[in-house]
Amino acid sequence: MHSVRTLVLRLARENTTWGYRRLHGELLVLGVKAAAPTVWKILQEASIGPAPERASSTWTDFLRPQADTLLTCNFFETVTLSGARIHVFAVIEHANRRIRIVGATTHPTSAWVAQAAKNLTMDLEDVGCRARYLITDWDGKFPDLLDAVLADAGHEVALSGVQMPRMNSLMEQWVQTCRRELLDRTLIWNHRHLLHALREFEQFYNTHRPPQGIANTRPLHALPTPIDDPEQISRLNIRRRDRLDGILHEYQHAA
């Protein structure tokens, strides 16, 4: 059984990269109603320093009202144990932070990117996504054919400014999260292993991990009703479920 204090300290010690806002989000996912300053105070009393907060930006403020119409994408690289460089193509929705791993390849040719874009548009159509614009950077991996494929599906490519990563900040932040919480902690054997790990992280990110940028509401699941019963709060029974042999942790109430 766990009190709120012992649960916060357990989560903090088992997840050393989480700041107090991330810990606060995990409590909300579990239905434990505790204020973020309370979490911060518990960490301070235990001499566990919280991660520094990210400053908001005017670009973020501008994007927020347009979120329902925006997607952003990027390629990022990872290296297998054999030294092979694999390029991962990922897309994120601004409105709900849902991530999609579109594909991964050692050779991102124009034909491969075009086919990946077709797969993406079919997926978006299946779930009724209303996004109209896809933000990309000036990476040479994005061919002119990509514009044509997206235009046929009713989407338009919007290029970010040159050397202005903050215009693609959501994707840049997600890539950093993916590296910090998964890729930097995993030995990738081959292409197949990479896709398996990325699919697991995609599902974890979309169904469990609470993004602070949208009030900790998970992309595919709303937050549960907070637990108001003091008796229930004082007798929490939280179980941990591991993904990828313990690289990722999910916390749930015991049945």
Score class of each variant (00 low, 15 high):
T6H: 07
V8F: 05
L11Y: 09
A12I: 03
T16L: 15
L27K: 09
A34K: 12
K41F: 11
I48C: 06
I48T: 06
G49Q: 15
G49C: 15
T58M: 13
F62Y: 15
P65C: 08
Q66F: 14
Q66R: 15
D68G: 14
F76E: 01
V79M: 06
I86L: 12
F89M: 02
A95C: 11
R97F: 04
I101N: 00
I101W: 00
G103V: 02
T106C: 07
T106Q: 09
T106A: 11
H107S: 13
P108L: 03
P108H: 02
T109V: 03
S110V: 02
W112G: 00
A114K: 06
Q115K: 09
A117W: 00
N119C: 06
L120W: 04
T121F: 01
T121Q: 05
E125I: 08
R130S: 14
A131F: 02
Y133H: 14
Y133N: 09
L134P: 00
W138A: 15
G140E: 12
F142K: 01
F142V: 02
L146P: 02
A148W: 10
V149E: 05
D152I: 08
G154W: 08
H155L: 12
V157R: 10
S160A: 13
M164C: 10
M171H: 03
E172D: 07
W174R: 01
V175C: 04
R179P: 01
R180G: 08
E181D: 14
R185P: 11
T186Q: 09
T186G: 07
L187R: 14
I188Y: 01
I188G: 01
W189H: 13
H196I: 05
E200R: 10
F201A: 04
H208V: 11
H208A: 11
R209Y: 10
G213S: 13
E231Y: 12
Q232M: 12
R235P: 03
R241V: 15
A254P: 05
